[in-house]
Design a protein around this nucleic acid. Structure first.
Lengths: 178, 178
DNA sequence: CAACGTTGTGTACGCTCGTACATATGGGAT
DNA sequence: ATCCCATATGTACGAGCGTACACAACGTTG
């Protein structure tokens, strides 16, 4: 038979799932579509991931890791001298101005936790990680509030197609920081 | 043949769609499931709503109207003497403590706009309406920021299963209000 | 080298789905 | 009274779905 003992098979399936969700959304994700995208037979996807939720958990976790890497590479928010509101607003603008598919992918996976309890631990982990990262620069309550506000602002842009206004974001973020 | 000339047929289909989404989520919505829930034949749903997006638009719009009514009935946020942050935090706590199905329904319909452009105008309308309502009590920038923060706080509660902390909400909402 | 268990593969079953379409019905225009 | 057309209905088709399962390949272990 065909290719055997492919140790990265599982990883390639996750990558394919992320591409599929990015292109067609979670609604377009099925064992068959990932199989086709990853160029593996159907049985291979059902073997590695018994349910689609399992696959989604793996995909969301990997997407989060990629996102964390992007943050880290961009200075990492560690400079205690810089203005945090300015930094966050700039970073959000950069993110929203970039590849829209990637942004939608992240948020779709994140928001899917609303109806899929299996994804909630991963979503919670992600929110906590970001808050922890901000905690180096401010207190815990403010960090949580900043995460909430960032999410809310991003959602307004994504859901209502109102263009991102960096000055507005800077202004309201600054108000939350004591 | 069976029942004819049912002028409320369309409305009953929308009501059924809302019930279906509330119980099984958008993923469980189909012409067939709505037809069964509304007790009408399959052809009736496809006749009144050519696509599921059409049906979702109608459902989201109706859900928004119901929500607006709830706000209006609860004092309406019009009293200029009351503390706005306290009012909003209390109202959010009441909403999140109530029927979880209803809360999830609202947010699922709202967030679905991320991947369904057809829903975006309705989502935008809803966000604008709420901001307008708040504008009686504060300036436009603050109103928008409050909507974003409310959304972000609700999402944290819904996605991560962290219990709602009204005191925290009051505190950070107050910071946004100049 | 033989038995075994993990990993990979192909296929088929039963189900639900959106869609199309032929047909029926009766209110309103003429 | 007659015709037209929006409304309503039932059925059938093809596609895609999750799942199950028998079988193939090969590293590991004894």
């Amino acid at each position: 038979m065909g290719r055997r003992y492919d140790p990265e098979r599982r990883q390639r399936i996750i990558d394919a799932a992320i591409r599929v969700v990015g292109e067609k959304g979670i609604a377009g994700l099925s064992h068959r579509t990932v199989a086709a995208e990853a160029d593996v037979p159907l049985g291979s996807t059902t073997y590695h991931f018994k349910t689609l939720d399992d696959l989604l958990v793996a995909a969301l976790r990997q997407a989060n890791e990629g996102f964390a890497k992007v943050i880290a590479s961009r200075g990492g928010l560690e400079d205690p001298g810089a203005d945090l509101a300015v930094e966050l607003a700039g970073w959000m603008g950069e993110w929203l101005a970039g590849d829209r598919t990637g942004v939608e992918l992240e948020y779709e996976l994140y928001l899917a936790a609303l109806r899929r309890p299996a994804l909630r631990p991963v979503a919670a982990e992600w929110a906590r990680d970001l808050a922890d990262r901000l905690s180096c620069r401010t207190d815990a309550v403010t960090a949580r509030a900043l995460v909430a506000l960032l999410d809310g602002i991003c959602l307004q842009v994504l859901l209502t197609e109102v263009p991102y206004d960096e000055e507005y974001a800077r202004e309201v973020l600054a108000r939350v920081i004591p």
